[in-house]
Design a protein around this nucleic acid. Sequence first.
DNA 1: CAATACTCTAGAGTAATACTCTAGAGCAAC
DNA 2: GTTGCTCTAGAGTATTACTCTAGAGTATTG
Lengths: 211, 211
Amino acid sequence: MLYSFEGVIVVAGAREDLMAAGLAVFDRDGFEGATVAAIRARARASNGSFFHFFGSKKKLAGALFLEVLQRYHAAVLAAIDTPCGAREGIDRLIRAHLDWVVNNRREARYLFEISRSEWSEEVRDAQRAQNSRLGEGVERWRAPLIVSGELLPMTPVLFFSQIIGPAQIFCRAWLSGRDRSDPRLQADILIACAIRALVAPQSVADTGGTP
Amino acid sequence: MLYSFEGVIVVAGAREDLMAAGLAVFDRDGFEGATVAAIRARARASNGSFFHFFGSKKKLAGALFLEVLQRYHAAVLAAIDTPCGAREGIDRLIRAHLDWVVNNRREARYLFEISRSEWSEEVRDAQRAQNSRLGEGVERWRAPLIVSGELLPMTPVLFFSQIIGPAQIFCRAWLSGRDRSDPRLQADILIACAIRALVAPQSVADTGGTP
DNA sequence: CAATACTCTAGAGTAATACTCTAGAGCAAC
DNA sequence: GTTGCTCTAGAGTATTACTCTAGAGTATTG
């Protein structure tokens, strides 16, 4: 079913309702606690509909995972779609990650906490494809900066691990409720550490680091 | 039941058998796929025994989580129990983490992949207590190095996020099977990045970095 | 229009499984 | 011997993921 809402084309229908309901129920009850009945009820869909669109609870979870992953990647890529230097890009990437997690808590909780890695091959392949597309996007921004000597040379995964890894420690603590303080409060210091780890020394001196 | 095996006192019995069986079955089938029947069968314990010791499947999982967490923390703390400088300590901490994950794949998979944060308050409190004990241990090593100016001053959690965060990206990819290559291959470069992020600049020059 | 095929809805029924309950064996204390 | 406690045993129950059959709605084709 297609209709427009406030000028934007919106896709709705039982399938989309079920996925939205799934996200909500997974967030409230966790993966184990979430029952198909609860998801069906929230989406006002019959049992037949549920198993027509998704063959199982796990397949719904897999479809949801890929959709949320896509939205997350889009948010990260959007941070560096306009050209910028090494420090500026690192700043934007880390802030994009923190912002997305805080502004999309439900989705982030699902992506990083609730969803398990017991996906089917199909889902895993799609995940790999998504990951490499994200990698390519980041590389388009990063490669020239390695050539110009602003960024230290390293593998794409290692670079990403330095950007996202430390931030994720705070995000996971916040998402699980273990820590109440907004992870964005750590943005400045996380960025400073990442710049020291990733930006070439002379470049640090050039642009003038914090005194 | 207590008996000694090769000179070491070993505790065994239905409770321990069930926990070991739980770890094995969770590793093989994931949390969802693991059935109480499978765990019981592997431990050769009756249904009554299972629910006598652990009131539910989740409580077994919680007990297992705390036990594995304790072993992991012990391994990390052991890395810095003998005095050492900033660079040496960072090196040891990162290697200890990577080594533990690779040498205890089952436990690591359980800790970082399978077990989720849907624990009871009791388990979460115990987790917090464990975490702060780890934090204290790390601080005993770190505090003097901040005073002496070798390490940059920052909060304990931020420091830990820089040590563990990037390494975890590789460990999770390896644990999930997404990436086959041994995460320990990244040790040197992860350590180099962490040193740039955490060690005071003059100290970097002093000790002579890799050319 | 009629016939057909296809998508989706509906809900009763089934099999699996986490958990409960009652009974009792083994053992220690007194 | 009796009592009390810990642990074992397994039959029974309630929940829940999933299957199956039937049919309504809708597009397609002759």
